[in-house]
Amino acid sequence: MGDHLNGYGTSEQFVLNEAALKQNITVFIKLFATFRDKRFMTQHMDFPVRSTVREVLKAIEIPEEEVAICMVNGRSKEIDHELADGDTLSLFPPVGGG
């Protein structure tokens, strides 16, 4: 997309509108450490538009309080962060080391 959008706003707005028109967003979910037990390592999943991390956790049955680190596209985010189509969500239980 690009030039043909002239006069209709930025391409970013266009993506947003396109997402709004879509029923669902697709999120790439990556699970780590014990979260993988009886679940999966990575998976693409669809959610209704405007879904937050909380809805994803509900769907994959991870209690909120077990999430120590939540990253969206590599950046730390809170559980109520609203996801966008194409986001990568990485979820970790408490981990650390050095």
């Binding site: 780590f32 450490a33 014990t34 680190i69 970790f92 239980p93 408490p94 981990v95 650390g96 080391g97 050095g98």
Partner: peptide, 13 residues
């Protein structure tokens, strides 16, 4: 975290 995976659990994060 550390008891289950040791320090190597950091690679992914």
């Amino acid at each position: 975290g550390l008891p289950t995976y040791g320090t190597a659990v950091l690679v992914n994060i």
